[in-house]
Design a protein around this nucleic acid. Structure first.
Length: 546
DNA sequence: CGATCCCGCCAGCGG
DNA sequence: CCGCTGGCGGGATCG
């Protein structure tokens, strides 16, 4: 793994040390034993590398609030290279780093001229997205967005499965954190999950706060505190271009957030070759699962295929660790939302393709770049016994599968459960030559010679059941008292979706500029609407960039 | 005045 | 014990 000291990122011309450097440099240097620079070839360069600062108007600078602030101001004014340094920061933290980048909180804080405390907030949100991972004290690994997609799919599946709040957080050693630690991280997970299971992909701040608030936290002050935290999280997510701030129409200034990130995710652990993210790291999802340490992840198992077929699609988090079955391999509902614009490279999920037919809708399962078995389920429950196997041998050259779906059901929110399995553990399925789809044709494109076979599921033999457990009804969540306990008071479900807003409008761009955490760490590659750059060296609060 | 978020105190924990 | 971590909420700022 390549490590880079943020000190190394400082330009040679940067001669001014920030406050933190003074007393932390010694330790920081000791910690930075790796010096290889990460690749700078990442195409995702910041669109706005400069540092917008809080508008202070034309008034003269006020007296410094604190000695620290004063020092920061002086440093900022004295170092016109600070913006360039931050620009380099952005360039050095690519969205899809080829090698893991080790970062030190001390150095981040010092280099960016902010308190450590500020870094923790952002780090926690990034951790919830598996964009960073805690390596050791004061040291984190930067993964960028390599694992983000998998993580979002993970959060979505768990939200769909559990219908309640995620299980308690586990730290890197698997130890449960009983205290209120990691609450921001957990809150971030929940907040993101709300979007991922919401049909409208939007949620008001108020709703989010109420849904995310602790059971007992009913007081107004608790609510306000929660809102503060939501702003912290939302600002990071906004910088990541995962959400944007909107306002609910006809409700005054009621703030809301709209999800901008992906909402369709491939079934986990399958079709890895289809992972065509910019970095081209096809194993990223596996890596994500292997290294994830959140409560959503079970310990790694021996083989993806094995756990694929062994896994119950539901109840992922609360099995005893020793027998934990990887929940991430449970493919399930592929939401079909007409008009969804799939992000490049993400797949396979089912996408509606054609609703021109009055009787059918065409959806497709893209990126079948390896021989696969698709399990089709009748109804909406993939934990029931699958109705058919669809085996897709490699030699067919089949890259995707089209499905004709009954148009009787609204495509919006339609879920077609399926399970995509690499063929290795399923050799008992004999491939056949033709694409045969069962009882209720027509299926597939006209004249399709897809070279795949849809095989009615044979009755499970005991051996198969024991080995692959394909036909056993998947246990339904919740499986633990914890999971069985509804988190939301009186609702029985943490995720009360869809939380459709009547209508939302984009928040006035630049009205209030960007959020604090957003300003603190420019984690994102900014959306188009950024506030104008103000004067260099303004005595404002600094805003670090990643 | 509500929305937003800056800021730092301080508790808990681990090395 | 001390530094790291982060929960928390007062209060400033903005529109």
């Amino acid at each position: 793994m390549f490590c880079v000291s943020l000190k190394d990122l400082s330009s040679p011309e940067r001669t001014t040390h920030l406050p933190g450097d003074v007393h932390r440099s010694g330790k920081a240097q000791k910690e930075n034993i790796c010096t290889a620079l990460p690749s700078l070839a990442d195409p995702l360069t910041p669109t706005d590398p400069l540092t917008p600062v809080k508008h202070t108007g034309d008034t003269p600078l006020p007296e410094p609030w604190t000695p620290t602030a004063n020092l920061k101001m002086l440093i900022s004014a004295a170092s016109p290279d600070i913006r360039q340094m931050r620009q380099r920061f952005l360039a050095l933290y690519p969205d899809y780093p080829q090698d893991n980048v080790s970062i030190s909180l001390d150095e981040v804080a010092a280099s960016l001229g902010v308190e450590r405390r500020r870094i923790y907030d952002i780090i926690n949100v990034l951790e919830s997205l598996t964009m960073v991972d805690r390596e050791a004290k004061n040291r984190y690994t930067w993964y960028g967005r390599r694992r983000l997609h998998a993580r979002l799919g993970q959060l979505q599946r768990l939200a769909q499965q559990q219908g309640c709040s995620p299980a308690p957080f586990e730290d890197g050693d698997g130890a449960m954190a009983n205290r209120k630690d990691k609450s921001l991280r957990l809150m971030s997970e929940r907040f993101v999950s709300l979007f991922l299971v919401s049909e409208s992909r939007s949620i008001t701040l108020e709703n989010a706060a109420r849904l995310l608030i602790d059971q007992q936290a009913t007081s107004h002050s608790k609510y306000k505190t929660k809102v503060r935290r939501l702003y912290d999280i939302a600002n990071v997510l906004t910088s990541l271009a995962l959400i944007r701030k909107v306002h609910v129409q006809d409700q005054g200034r009621k703030p809301a957030f709209q999800w901008l990130g992906p909402v369709h995710f491939r079934p986990p652990g399958v079709a890895m070759a289809a992972d065509a993210q910019p970095g081209g790291v096809s194993h990223s999802d596996l890596e994500a699962r292997r290294t994830d340490h959140s409560s959503f992840n079970a310990p790694p198992t021996r083989s993806t295929a094995h756990r694929l077929v062994n896994s119950a699609p539901c109840s992922p988090t609360s099995r005893p660790a020793a027998v934990s079955q990887q929940p991430l391999d449970c493919s399930r509902h592929a939401p079909l939302d007409l008009g969804y614009a799939n992000e490049a490279g993400s797949a396979p999920s089912l996408h509606p393709e054609d609703d021109s037919s009055p009787n059918h809708r065409l959806a497709y399962l893209p990126s079948l770049s390896q021989p696969s078995v698709v399990l089709l389920y009748e109804g909406q429950r993939c934990w029931a016994q699958p109705s058919h196997y669809l085996y897709v041998p490699r030699e067919t050259g089949l890259n995707n599968i089209n499905f004709l779906l009954s148009a009787s059901q609204s495509a919006a929110g339609l879920s077609l459960p399926y399970l995509l399995i690499p063929p290795s553990p399923l050799g008992f399925l004999s491939p056949a030559a033709n694409f045969l789809v069962g009882e209720a044709g027509p299926y597939g494109p006209p004249g399709a010679e897809l070279g795949a076979t849809l095989v009615p599921l044979p009755p499970p033999s005991p051996e198969q059941s024991e080995t692959y457990d394909l036909s056993k009804p998947r246990p339904l969540t919740p499986c633990t008292p914890k999971e069985a306990t509804p988190t939301l008071r009186g609702s029985g479900s943490f995720f009360q979706t869809p939380m459709t807003l009547d209508s939302v409008v984009p928040a006035a761009g630049g009205r209030r500029k960007r959020g604090s955490a957003q300003r603190r760490l420019d984690v994102g590659h900014a959306p188009a609407s950024r506030e104008p750059i103000t004067a260099l060296g303004s005595p404002t609060r600094t805003r670090p960039h990643i």
